[in-house]
Design a protein around this nucleic acid. Structure first.
Lengths: 243, 243
DNA sequence: CGATCGTTTGACAAGGGTCAAAATGCGTGG
DNA sequence: CCACGCATTTTGACCCTTGTCAAACGATCG
């Protein structure tokens, strides 16, 4: 399961996600689905975008997990956000400037190029919404890191990640695939891996979560939710011109 | 100095800042400068954008400080970012979705509307660059909160804020106007106001910073800079189509 | 001149970090 | 199928940074 594309690359993941964000025209859907056949695979740990590079092409993740990260001089690493199937790379504010972060494959990752959207098109609107969602997650992360203790950070992150994965059909209300090491999660949540471990143990003891296979099971999503006053970033809308 | 616009509103702050980010056409500059005459003043503590509201118009800060913030159920507050003179409101990713944060005036704030940019215009490019800068600051904030201790957070924030203010001529390399209470700074940096105080005292003792009037003086910018491996988010570029 | 807000300081508590070792899991090769 | 080596998880003991509570101090304003 290295660079060999053994697993299905998740065809239509991107087109479907964008269709949930915004209604697309048939031609746009076709263009997206066509793009999804030109897959590029990245092995574990490979840099997908190097630090300081400028994005020239717009891509999207078809399958696998990646992360945007920044490493300090002394080796401390902050994972800025995870990139999940369906997420766009190099679109929106984060694509415009030269970056001081890199994007690294956590599992084997499949990406494809994504068509340029004409200004004003439905596709452009979908991209903009996806961008806005990403921004939302960044701000939510700031709140996690700035105000929440370890247990709250875990709970909030689990719920957010569940919802993001559910948007592409990869998670259910109480089950989240989990390919990360506790150290990666620690680098994302701004605590040490030892403390992630302790906090997860405590939550397990309290009947909040459970591990099974490569997944985390939320035993009591409702209790988790009120623990952090979690509100989903996105709710299906009938159209973008509602009241 | 309340709602009465006693201080000059900082005419041309916005147009000048955008011109430093990207070369603008005369007509665009004229449009911006015209817009800067229709000033709207906000008194201290007034909500400029309410939580959950959707931005309908694009504005910019002409003078004064504001902040984007989110308050948790139990009263904890996270300041997501500060809005300084020249900063745009409601442009880019943060304008697209309905927000879960509000924008509040910290000092008296003057804003004006800002023209809509035609797709592909130089003005649109300037807006995009401003948006990218804002994104950069959000990511930098995540790193501060996730990986840095109190002293590093302070140093990093001071340097970033200096550079942002210097971009509109409001700070020099070693002097930053400082209208915040320590509690606001605490809510931004994810520590308590008591600890902000202690950390600032320690930095004062170490000859790093100093207070004078409503400003903070950086006594040793270079030492501060290497304390956190600070790199400016923005450096003047000859043009956007460089090698 | 009181009232109020912000800063400063102290004593103490606690959440989380550090270091190190043991336990568990897992892919590889024999 | 077993044995080995490596990565990850788990646990314990101890320490340090930061939070909490409270009081004193200082400045600003009606």
């Amino acid at each position: 399961m290295n660079s060999a594309p053994s697993a299905a690359p998740g065809l239509q993941t991107i087109s479907k996600r964008l269709q949930r964000l915004s209604l697309l025209k048939d031609a746009e859907i076709a263009a997206l689905e066509a793009a999804e056949h030109e897959v590029r695979w990245w092995p574990v740990r490979r840099e997908i975008v190097a630090e300081g590079a400028r994005m020239r092409e717009q891509r999207a993740v078809m399958s696998g997990w990646a992360c945007r990260q920044h490493v300090l001089l002394d080796g401390r690493r902050q994972i800025l956000c995870f990139l999940l199937p369906g997420d766009l790379i190099g679109i929106g504010g984060l694509g415009a400037s030269d970056s001081f972060w890199s994007i690294v494959a956590i599992t084997a990752v499949a990406t494809c190029r994504v068509p340029i959207a004409e200004a004003g098109s439905s596709l452009a609107e979908a991209y903009a919404l996806s961008d806005a969602l990403e921004q939302h997650h960044l701000l939510a992360h700031i709140i996690r890191l700035g105000q929440m203790d370890a247990r709250e950070r875990l709970a909030d992150w689990l719920l957010e990640t569940r919802d993001r994965l559910a948007l592409v059909g990869l998670a259910t209300v109480d089950r989240i695939p989990f390919p990360l090491t506790q150290e990666m999660l620690a680098d994302a949540l701004g605590i040490t891996s030892v403390h992630v471990n302790r906090t997860l143990s405590a939550m397990r003891r309290d009947g909040l979560v459970e591990k099974s296979d490569g997944s985390i099971v939320l035993l009591d999503p409702h209790r988790l939710q009120q623990l952090v006053d979690y509100k989903p970033a996105w709710r299906a809308r009938a159209s973008s011109t509602d009241s």
